[in-house]
Design a protein around this nucleic acid. Sequence first.
DNA 1: CTACATGCAAAGGGTTTGCACGACA
DNA 2: TGTCGTGCAAACCCTTTGCATGTAG
Lengths: 154, 154
Amino acid sequence: MKVEPSVIERRVEHFKSKAHEAGIKLTHQRLEIFREIASRLDHPDAESIYHSIRIRIPGISLDTVYRTLWILYDLNLIATYGQPRESVHFDPNPAPHHHYICVRCGIIRDLSTPEFDEFAVSPAASVFGSVLAFRVELSGLCEGCSRASSAVAH
Amino acid sequence: MKVEPSVIERRVEHFKSKAHEAGIKLTHQRLEIFREIASRLDHPDAESIYHSIRIRIPGISLDTVYRTLWILYDLNLIATYGQPRESVHFDPNPAPHHHYICVRCGIIRDLSTPEFDEFAVSPAASVFGSVLAFRVELSGLCEGCSRASSAVAH
DNA sequence: CTACATGCAAAGGGTTTGCACGACA
DNA sequence: TGTCGTGCAAACCCTTTGCATGTAG
């Protein structure tokens, strides 16, 4: 299972036009970093991309990889899985459950919604392997932050 | 919305018996750290707990908070939200979608399961505020790792 | 009394930044 | 040619660890 070369090239062309639009220079490094992530089905971290790129551009530095990935993120060409520099949060409840997170204040609250659990056995899920756990994470503006916003609006 | 004092005390007693069982010493610091996390509905990080505890135990150090939290985790008294020291993973697909993660090798793959979309309109979800986005994360043993395990078994 | 827990400070690992040099447009 | 990007090294932040002292059992 690999990404089709034609798909990769289409993505690269998309990057080129987006970069042009944004006034971002198309350096050799940026093109290779984009080509690398566009051709992968896993979700690599910066270090993994760095090692792959080094084969083609031996002198490249890790910080250029980071800088480029955040540029691609800002251009909405890639997404992130996991937040940068986030500390571990501890949950008083050790039983499996789901969460609600406020996009503004970051508060995390427990969600007890048993109806989610029936989706754990979804056949689509087992494409890649066995399913041992299942987490749903909802995000939005919490009531407190929502009130704060509307107060400002007055 | 707060945790009932009786619930907190029941949890503290549970901790005491678990600690005794495990041969873990019940220090003042450990009891206060446990009481703090047991009485909270949010999911604090170590620093947040540290600041609350310092009011009661001014001389406590942050590393004791960390060490205690991981002990509580090992005793299955608390859980974590987010993994410790995990690096950011970059996702070539910027559109909202879901993920499958292998618990052994850590590979992350995209899941396209439209049936998950009804979670967004679940009434249980809006208890805390508006729902703007949601993520489903399935985890298990991927096919590759599963094959590797059964090979060892022969 | 003795093993284990604590506090301190320093190290670790992933990520970011300041600066001078280098290269795209 | 001028501005922006790169590589290098050092800084940063959260977290962990080594070590001497303190304390629960």
